[in-house]
């Protein structure tokens, strides 16, 4: 098993580590860096729970190796809210729309919505819904998630 040095920024803080080549970014974020808000629901790229933002884009961290994230900026659910605890708009809308029950799928959904509404180009409602079809929630029946996405699209004027 080969070991590799990686340097990356997670939620604004620098991390240096030695990781096995086979370690996924998701496992690294959870087990080595301590960001247990990254949830692993399938570890084969279908459920979307493990989604994090890597260099501005939503990525399934179970399908990316930690070594591939060398030099990247990573954001997890822990890094969305402001330092003073003010929730990110995506978190706030999800809360107001009761878009979660057990909360297991939630971090992935937050990161996808944040990636698509946080940059220069704001996604429209159809794009958000399409992207959300890659997230499985077994609890809510998606009612609140859909309402939240609609509000985010409306707020961004799309």
């Amino acid at each position: 098993m080969s070991e590799h040095r990686v340097n990356l920024t997670i939620n604004g803080r620098g991390h240096a580590a030695t990781v096995e080549a086979r370690m996924s970014l998701g496992d690294y974020l959870r087990d080595e860096a301590g960001y247990t808000g990254v949830h692993l629901g399938c570890e084969h790229g279908v459920c979307g729970a493990c989604t994090v933002i890597v260099d501005g884009r939503a990525v399934r961290s179970c399908l990316m190796l930690a070594v591939q994230a060398d030099g990247s900026e990573v954001t997890t659910a822990e890094g969305l809210a402001d330092g003073d605890g003010t929730l990110h708009p995506v978190q706030q809308v999800m809360r107001e729309e009761h878009a979660l029950q057990c909360g297991f799928c939630t971090p992935g959904i937050l990161m996808t919505l944040a990636a698509l509404t946080g940059g220069q180009e704001k996604a429209d409602e159809a794009t958000l819904m399409n992207s959300l079809s890659g997230h499985i929630c077994r609890c809510t029946g998606y009612q609140g998630i859909r309402r939240a996405a609609r509000r985010l699209a409306a707020d961004s004027g799309q």
């Binding site: 959870r30 960001y35 808000g37 659910a77 999800m94 809360r95 971090p107």
Partner: peptide, 19 residues
């Protein structure tokens, strides 16, 4: 009413067994 559980779950601070 807004849920008591949500602030921790929305900020990645829930405590599931694998955590």
């Amino acid at each position: 009413v807004l849920r008591k559980e949500d602030p921790r779950l929305l900020t990645g601070r829930g405590q599931f067994v694998d955590d």
